[in-house]
Design a protein around this nucleic acid. Structure first.
Length: 560
DNA sequence: TTGACCACGTA
DNA sequence: CGTACGTGGTCAAC
């Protein structure tokens, strides 16, 4: 396997040089980025290597920009995050852990300013065995020889990571997390296709016409406010954006509430015109401020694509994150997300993914059997002798720790019927109580204690229980995230020959922008990839995974 | 200017 | 006393 490793590393912008190095067992090449992209494309075709880089963002961006699709990669930063449960994954950190040096001994990288002292020694590794901190932040990395050293260091780290015990326990995770980081760059490059005029119409409907000036914008704002304040005679000066002032306003109208949240106020909407107008104001204000004209101008390009920064994993259980509202676009605006001419959106989401993941990671025989059904809760309900809604609440309560509602007696039934599945959740909860980290199925280390300065386990029962809930959730949500990423990573490869791209990942949902004539093939590939990944990810555990897929012209057409 | 809190959108 | 994320508002402390 290691014979296939090929390093691809680039000099950082601060180095002032345009150099990229390609280094493998029988290759040492350094050149400018444009030439590198061509070489990389050739090597990908001829050798299909596993590309090694410090991180996709620092080393593979030019390749992605050139439109070259790389299939297999090893992203040192993502694997570092996975193995050690830390967000920070700079080369110095990666190097230290790969050489068994505690992370506390890694000095903070010096600030990248003009006054930084540049050590001109030719060595990359210091006397202390640490990678020199200024290699990336300073200008040191500015000659072909040094870039070769940089690439060799990456290969050394990759070998160490691949030799980690958890690499053998979950061989697919490294590849998946790495491919996801690359996919993140592709998502940023391609963007989410939108129908500009439709999006503009939707924003206009809620927030009003595009303001022509700052004064105009302020007028619009006052007009929106006036609609609410008209219901509050004598209190027209209330600042609706200040929750304390709103609370006072409501009290003046005889409505005493602990806070002014939507769900707190909703019961009063039926009887109070003030509350009704306030809630409507909030909805409009949300669009006007967060998803209004400024948002459109900032994040939607001239090519009618919505773009934001993506990350392959968050700081917790490992879900993908996205900025620019890509992960929390209000349903109201979804008609504005639409395929471009000659194309369609193919949408798919994983059905009941979290209980199915619980079945898979626990290998609980009865629970795995239940996953054979299109609706997993039906056989669970039958086995427990309860109605389906009760069974559903009980399963969700077991996974998330919710105690409200009538899940109590059904929970006891779950313990009897699916002891192995419940044991997985209980073990995670117990680890969290003790402040210990947990491992996801894919081998991600998830810390339950923020750091040495956070409360000692046992000192605060509330904190302990919160850590327990977090841990119980992390083993499910984390494994689901890994599985989703594995699905999309495979899809990403299969879609390329069809001229289709993944344009949105939303935890358990994926949107593909595809040529219309290939729509059905994409749908077939969504299902085929899913069952393949299920077999790879959980060998010998015949859990059934299901996806609901559809061909749409607008995102809003989804059954949801 | 920064960090805390509120509030709310998504899964 | 489900969990998690990103965003934009206000306020109090600098």
């Amino acid at each position: 396997m290691s014979a296939d490793l090929l390093a691809l590393v680039s000099a950082p912008p601060s180095s002032g040089v345009d150099l990229t190095a390609l280094v493998g067992s029988s290759l040492r090449w350094v050149g400018p980025a444009t030439q590198a992209a061509q070489r990389v494309a050739d090597l990908e075709t001829k050798l299909s290597p596993r590309w090694v880089w410090w991180s996709a963002r620092t080393d593979a961006a030019a390749t992605v920009r050139a439109g070259v699709l790389l299939r297999r990669c090893h992203d040192l930063a993502e694997v570092h995050r996975l193995l050690y449960g830390r967000w920070s994954a700079a080369p110095e950190d990666v190097w230290a852990t790969a050489h068994g040096i505690p992370l506390d001994e890694v000095a903070q990288a010096p600030p990248d300013d003009l006054f930084a002292v540049v050590d001109e020694s030719p060595r990359l590794v210091g006397q202390d065995g640490l990678l020199r901190g200024d290699a990336l932040s300073g200008r040191w990395l500015n000659t072909p020889e040094r870039l070769i050293q940089w690439a060799e260091a990456a290969l050394t780290c990759a070998a160490h990571q691949l030799g980690h015990p958890r690499s053998r326990a979950a061989p697919l995770t490294f590849a998946t997390e790495s491919a996801t980081a690359l996919l993140c760059l592709e998502l940023e490059r391609d963007g989410l296709p939108i129908d500009r005029s439709r999006l503009e119409a939707l924003i206009t409907k809620v927030a009003g016409e595009r303001p022509l000036s700052l004064a105009d914008e302020a007028d619009r704002r006052r007009e929106r406010d006036a609609l609410v304040l008209a219901h509050a005679p004598g209190r027209e000066g209330t600042d609706l954006r200040n929750p304390a002032a709103v609370k006072e306003l409501l009290a003046g109208a005889g409505i005493e509430v602990p806070d002014t949240r939507k769900w707190t106020l909703e019961p009063y909407a039926a009887t109070s015109a003030l509350v009704r107008s306030l809630l409507a104001w909030r909805a409009a204000e949300r669009i006007a401020t967060t998803y209004g004209w400024r948002w459109l101008d900032t994040h939607v390009g001239a090519d009618d694509r919505l773009r934001g920064a993506w990350t392959a994993c968050d700081g917790g259980a490992g879900r993908m994150t996205a900025e620019a509202g890509l992960h929390n676009l209000p349903v109201l605006l979804r008609p504005g997300v639409a395929a471009h001419a000659g194309r369609v959106l193919v949408r798919a989401d994983l059905g009941q993914i979290e209980p199915r993941i619980l079945a898979a990671v626990s290998a609980d025989r009865a629970f795995v059997e239940a996953s054979a059904a299109d609706d997993l809760y039906a056989p669970v309900a039958a086995r427990l002798g309860v109605e389906r809604p009760v069974a559903k609440i009980a399963v969700l309560a077991a996974m998330y720790g919710q105690r409200s509602g009538a899940a109590g007696e059904a929970l006891a039934g779950l313990e009897r019927a699916f002891p192995q599945a419940m044991a997985v959740l209980d073990a995670a909860y117990a680890a969290g109580l003790r402040g210990e980290p947990v491992l996801t199925h894919g081998g991600r280390l998830v810390h339950t204690r923020a750091g040495p300065s956070s409360p000692v386990p046992g000192s605060d029962p509330g904190v302990d229980r919160a850590r327990g809930r977090f841990a119980r959730n992390a083993v499910i949500q984390g494994a689901a995230a890994e599985f989703f990423k594995a699905w999309v990573a495979l899809l990403r490869q299969r879609l390329r020959p069809l001229g289709a791209e993944v344009v949105l990942c939303l935890h358990d949902e994926v949107l593909v922008h595809a040529p219309a004539q290939h729509a059905e093939e994409v749908v077939g590939q969504l299902h085929a990839s899913l069952s393949e990944v299920g077999r790879w990810w959980f060998p010998g555990v015949p859990v059934r995974f299901v996806a609901d897929a559809g061909v749409l012209s607008r995102w809003s057409e989804a059954k949801g």
